[in-house]
Design a protein around this nucleic acid. Structure first.
Lengths: 224, 224
DNA sequence: CATTTTCAATAGTTTTACTATTAATTTTGC
DNA sequence: GCAAAATTAATAGTAAAACTATTGAAAATG
């Protein structure tokens, strides 16, 4: 990823936090520390107590910003979806062919992100790791419906809708655009997780990006 | 599902339990109660204490059978994968055409299971619900690698391998058979979950089985 | 029938998730 | 410029969850 616009800030919905973490130094340390700690320990082992120790603050102070660790995860995944949508819009504006737009979109959805980029308090590579391993958990909960009512999945839905529209430009009769896009998004995450931990459930080829290639084939064959 | 053979028992690996739950009445009550309670409360809210109250036993007694609630989830998902493989073998033996075998396999992977079947202590419909919402969590953990070493995902891998072999019979040059199968398995679960909770991420059509139809198209177009 | 093993209950401990209260700091109203 | 109001983050908790040590009773074994 080349640098886009340097002083852009990605806004996450207010319903996910008690106090905007971008509004104070402690807030930014909470975000930065959460990304590092969730990446390191996994979401289950991540606690506000451990985070507080890491950033030299206290548990209670973290609770001033976030109601629960689940909201932190929702905050981070929402940031990620908004960031992805922003990059998608950037990559597809002024591209006249819907076909080329979809190629870029599928690439963005399936690529492996390792670099850290433009945002001082967010390490995009580590955040991508978190999204691979943990983002599914944000809607595989009994709270899905209430979280959803509060708009917690809006950026994800927007992204899926946007790419679905590109698909419908190419083939207006295709019946399952949303299913296709969300299959690619979640599938790419799971396949990368499998490649890291359960290789017999996937087909990783050394030196090739099999995940990107596989889903690109799937998408273009599906809508033909 | 029509009844197959009535006195078949599905064996789950010893590494997942401390004492075989099928070896005593209490053990069977633990399995039956766990399925009901996880289905009702979700895995996060499920505790051994609540289970003990439900089956009129004690927390400590449950710990005689299972090391942790994660192992219970692994036990249940393993049972499910073994059951699915059993049904797959049953549905494809004596079917000469690999194409027909694959059609049946995709159907088994994507169908919606609601009925309770042949196993006294296991409600297959509820177990399917659990697999839809919770099975991903069994490998989205920091324990994946050690669980995997203990063989916790063997039945899943077997199932994927078996269907991959069918795909390779149809098209020996297809590069991504495992990725395709695991995409269908996990995708079907996630899409059904979306249909229930986040419909804007999928394309549910009233009265049709869109999930089965979508993945069937994906598979046969992909390997062509 | 004595010995060993297994079983499941009681009664813990430790950790996690979350809250009430308060001193210190910052913001604001005039 | 300073008192009042609001905000911040620390201390010190509680309640529940996850898990363990111990033990008497029941069952299996030799």
């Amino acid at each position: 990823m080349k640098s886009l616009i340097s002083n852009i800030q990605i806004q996450v919905q207010h319903s996910l936090y008690l106090k905007d973490p971008l509004s104070s130094e402690l807030g930014k340390k909470i975000i930065k520390g959460s990304i590092e700690l969730i990446c390191e320990l996994g979401f289950e082992q991540f606690t506000f107590k451990k985070l507080a120790v890491k950033i030299a603050s206290t548990e209670a102070s973290v609770y001033r910003y976030f109601e629960s660790k689940n909201k932190v995860l929702l905050y981070l995944t929402n940031w990620y979806w908004s960031w992805l949508e922003y990059r998608l819009v950037f990559a597809t504006t002024n591209v006249p062919s819907a076909y080329d737009q979809l190629t870029k979109a599928v690439y963005l959805l399936t690529e492996d992100i390792t670099e850290d980029g433009n945002f001082e308090h967010i390490d995009e590579g580590k955040l991508h790791q978190i999204v691979l391993s943990e983002s599914l958990k944000s809607f595989l909960t009994k709270d899905v419906d209430s979280d959803n009512e509060g708009g917690a999945f809006a950026p994800y839905k927007n992204l899926v809708q946007r790419i679905s529209n590109i698909i419908l430009q190419i083939n207006p009769n295709y019946k399952y655009p949303h299913m296709l896009v969300s299959t690619v998004v979640e599938g790419a995450h799971i396949q990368r997780h499998f490649a890291n931990h359960l290789p017999r459930l996937t087909d990783v080829v050394e030196g090739e990006d099999a995940v990107a290639e596989f889903y690109s084939q799937i998408v273009f064959k599906a809508i033909k």
